[in-house]
Write a protein that binds this DNA or RNA. Structure first.
Lengths: 150, 150
DNA sequence: AAGACTTGATTCCAATTCGAACTAGTTGTA
DNA sequence: TACAACTAGTTCGAATTGGAATCAAGTCTT
């Protein structure tokens, strides 16, 4: 019995994976219109809340991305003029990533459409009680998975 | 109000993305012990149900993977001796991918652990009613997203 | 204060993925 | 039948990602 999943279980599992993937694809398609990938949007959105900039390491940790991967993306965003690197005052080794004015503009431009898509393709399809259940249940799952990773 | 998401909405959205990602990572870590990636496992598992083999195109479509991506993976699996290619009888252009006996063994070996992980990190953390709600709600989301893609 | 760890970030390399171009076999049509 | 359009699969090139190695700067121990 442990080596099988019944209809409902399989449905919930596939639903989770498929819904997550498809939603991310839809988001990707939409962000492409703004000339950015989901990861790049996430970086910009994160920096939007930190006007003083964020350390590369902090940013990588928040985004659960490898250091080298972040270095690559920040370099891309820098070439595109959306992000700039700055030295940290205290630690000579540190590098701060922060938005350029254009980066801020582009992030703010992309935001409404992103939120609109999430609403249209996800939240608007659910009852408030379902949103509640999903939030609560998946939070439990996320907590468990994060714990077992450390 | 449309350009903001409240706590609950954000929680459900992040939960969906995070739970999906983390679960896939956990699955990946486990399958790595069997020397395969999630995609490779999915390919093997799919072929497990088609003893006569599947056309490359069909397989790519089922897995929502590009043709070239599948070519690459099947080549890898072929090198590993888990899959073999065969000619189709009717269409000279066609190629069938099918499991080797070893491929079948390896897929069957990996299966219980995979199911066990999905249970331990996901299903066992949820009430039956929650599983039901998630399955139903996400199915609606998946349907909507698939429709808007075509 | 010197030498040994540790830490922040980048560089380099291998793996994976997609799309475009390509090859070969099919189908349709005049 | 011959030519055009199409289909199946592969190959090639570009982008992305993670891990190992590397470099520079801090910190700690003695």
């Amino acid at each position: 019995m442990t080596d099988e999943l019944d209809e409902d279980e399989l449905g919930a599992y596939f639903g989770l994976i498929a819904a997550g993937d498809l939603l991310q694809r839809a988001v990707a398609a939409q962000l492409a219109e703004h000339g950015m990938t989901p990861l790049q949007f996430t970086i910009l959105a994160t920096l939007l809340n930190s006007s003083a900039g964020l350390r590369m390491s902090e940013l990588a940790d928040v985004l659960v991305l490898s250091r080298s991967g972040l270095t690559y993306q920040v370099t891309q965003l820098e070439k595109a003029g959306l992000v700039r690197r700055a030295a940290t005052s205290d630690d000579e080794r540190g590098v701060l990533a922060m938005l350029t004015p254009m980066g801020r503009d582009r992030a703010l431009e992309a935001f409404p459409g992103h939120v609109g898509l999430v609403r249209a393709k996800f939240l608007d399809l659910l009852q408030p009680s379902e949103i509640d259940t999903i939030r609560e249940a998946l939070d439990r799952v996320v907590t468990a998975l994060r714990r077992s990773k450390a």
